[in-house]
Each structure stands twice: as structure tokens, then as C-alpha cells.
């Protein structure tokens, strides 16, 4: 049993952690639903609706330890949009993502995605430049 005198101390210690977990849970849940909506829009070929729907995800707060999920989301959307040759929207989402993420590894991943997109568009020089930039960013240390 925990002594009563320790309860306030424990609450003070763990409440920020629990609150952060709760915040992330809410973010994750919204993003999960929004992901389904965006894929439906792409499936229905309502491409103009994709950027505003994706914006709902970009508006959410992603803590650095969960940024990889946002990067993964952008990768999946890139593939889905590429499937329909909607490369300009894919670039738009990648640029939004680049403005959003803070961790160098996430930035590097998104620049690599841009490299892939450029390559698929037949823009070899731009692809190589984006890939080199990704490598350069990857070597930086996060503050």
C-alpha cells in the first residue's frame, strides 16, 4: 500500500507524463480518423479535398518521439497520390510536413521522399539534390 502522504508527491510527479500520454492519445486518434478520410478522398479521386483534409493532421501537435508516424503518413499519402499521378499535391504535403517536423531524422526522411517523387517525375537532378540534402541533414545532431 502507498502511504497517504506520498500520494500528492506521486501525483505531482506522474501527472505531466499522464497528461502528455493523454494528449498524444487524442492526437493519435484524430490523426487515425483523418488518415481514413484522406484515403477515401483519394479513392474517390476528390484530389482538391486532400490538402485541406491533410491540414487537419498537420495542425495536430506531434511530440518529437512520435514524428515518425507523421512521416510515415506522408509517405503513404505520397504513394497513394503517385498511384493517381497527383505529384503536385504530394509535393504540397511533403513541403507542409517539412515545415512541421522538428527532428532532423524526420526532415531527412521527408527530403528523401521528395527525392523519390522527383525521380518518379523524371527530374533526375532535383532528385539527386534532395537526396544529398537528406544525407546532409541526417548527419546533423538535434539540439
Amino acid at each position: 500500500m502507498i502511504p497517504r502522504s506520498l500520494v500528492p508527491i506521486l501525483m505531482l510527479t506522474f501527472s505531466p507524463i499522464l497528461r502528455a500520454q493523454g494528449d498524444w492519445e487524442e492526437t493519435r486518434s484524430i490523426a487515425q480518423s483523418q488518415h481514413e478520410i484522406i484515403l477515401l478522398l483519394i479513392e474517390k479521386k476528390e484530389f482538391d479535398e486532400v490538402p485541406p483534409a491533410a491540414e487537419e493532421i498537420f495542425k495536430l501537435h506531434f511530440p518529437p518521439e512520435h514524428e515518425d508516424k507523421l512521416v510515415e503518413e506522408i509517405r503513404i499519402l505520397t504513394d497513394a497520390l503517385l498511384h493517381h499521378n497527383q505529384t503536385s499535391i504530394a509535393h504540397q504535403l511533403l513541403d507542409k510536413g517539412l515545415a512541421k517536423v522538428t527532428v532532423n531524422r524526420s526532415k531527412a526522411e521527408l527530403h528523401r521522399e521528395k527525392a523519390y517523387l522527383f525521380k518518379r517525375e523524371g527530374k533526375a537532378d532535383e532528385a539527386m539534390n534532395a537526396f544529398k540534402l537528406a544525407k546532409e541533414i541526417e548527419q546533423r545532431t538535434d539540439p
Partner: peptide
């Protein structure tokens, strides 16, 4: 995402916001 069989199931599996099982197939949220 776009295979004819079980589109909805596949879409759910590709959601990156689902707790991931593997890198390329799950919704991360």
C-alpha cells in the same frame, strides 16, 4: 491501398496511425 479484394480492410491496415506491426503496412496513428 488499391487492390480490388478487401479495399477497406487493406486501407485500415495501411493506416500509419494504427499501432504499427510493420513499417510499410500499418496506420502509424
Amino acid at each position: 491501398l488499391f487492390s480490388n479484394a478487401g479495399v477497406e480492410v487493406n486501407r485500415a491496415r495501411s493506416n500509419p496511425f494504427v499501432k504499427p506491426v510493420s513499417f510499410s503496412t500499418r496506420n502509424p496513428f
